[in-house]
Simulated assay, not measured.
Amino acid sequence: MSDVLPTARPILLVEDNPADLDLTRRAFNRRHLVNPLLVARDGQEALDFLPRWSAGEPLPLVVLLDLKLPKVHGLDVLRQYKREEVSRSVPVVVLTTSDEDADIETAYTLGANSYILKPVDFDKFTQVASQIELYWCALNKPARA
């Protein structure tokens, strides 16, 4: 029997704004998050994970998805993730500045597990990151990867 602990599943952050990306990294670093943070900087990069997961790369524990992305809109990424068998069970948390009712309704209709408005204040954002970590990384029982 191996004494090696399994590697923590990654978190996929789909975010194009460098300031928000930095804020998220700093918030998770402050919380000493053990899960590796993968980054897709546009919607196409997010979709490029699908063949990698189909080839056996570990699925993320959760996807944090911005909506207003270059190349492919976040709602289209969500639609494709929930359409593909390999990624259908991966929880997707929309983390965005959009509080438009149409975006919220569409996200949930497409299968988003949660919809969170991004706070702009670092301390408030750290609290949000803490809650995301606590729920999705510690309390939630994920589907098998």
Rank of each mutant, 00 (worst) to 15 (best):
D3L: 14
P6E: 09
P6T: 04
P10D: 04
L12F: 05
L13E: 00
D16E: 06
N17V: 05
P18I: 00
P18L: 01
D20Q: 05
D22Q: 05
D22S: 05
L23C: 02
L23T: 00
L23I: 01
T24A: 11
R25F: 03
A27K: 01
A27F: 00
N29D: 14
R30L: 03
R31T: 00
R31H: 02
R31K: 03
H32T: 01
L33V: 11
L33I: 10
V34Q: 10
N35C: 03
P36D: 03
A40C: 07
R41I: 07
R41T: 11
A46Y: 09
P51S: 10
W53R: 03
W53G: 06
S54D: 15
S54L: 14
A55M: 11
A55V: 06
L64E: 04
L65V: 08
K68D: 15
P70T: 09
V72H: 09
H73D: 15
L75E: 10
V77F: 06
V77E: 13
L78H: 06
L78Q: 09
R79K: 15
R79F: 13
Y81M: 12
K82A: 08
K82G: 12
K82P: 11
R83D: 11
R83W: 13
E84S: 10
V86A: 14
R88M: 12
S89F: 12
S89Y: 13
V90A: 10
P91Q: 01
V92Q: 14
V92N: 15
V93Q: 06
V94Y: 08
L95N: 08
T97V: 15
S98G: 11
E100K: 08
D101C: 05
A102R: 12
D103Y: 08
T106W: 07
T106V: 09
A107C: 04
Y108R: 07
T109P: 00
T109Y: 05
G111C: 04
G111H: 01
A112L: 06
A112E: 05
A112R: 08
N113V: 03
S114G: 10
I116F: 14
I116W: 15
I116K: 11
L117A: 06
K118R: 11
K118Q: 07
P119F: 01
P119H: 06
V120Q: 15
D121Y: 02
F122S: 07
D123T: 07
K124D: 14
F125E: 11
F125H: 11
T126M: 03
V128W: 01
A129R: 02
S130G: 13
E133L: 05
E133C: 05
E133F: 01
N140A: 13
N140Y: 14
P142C: 02
P142V: 00
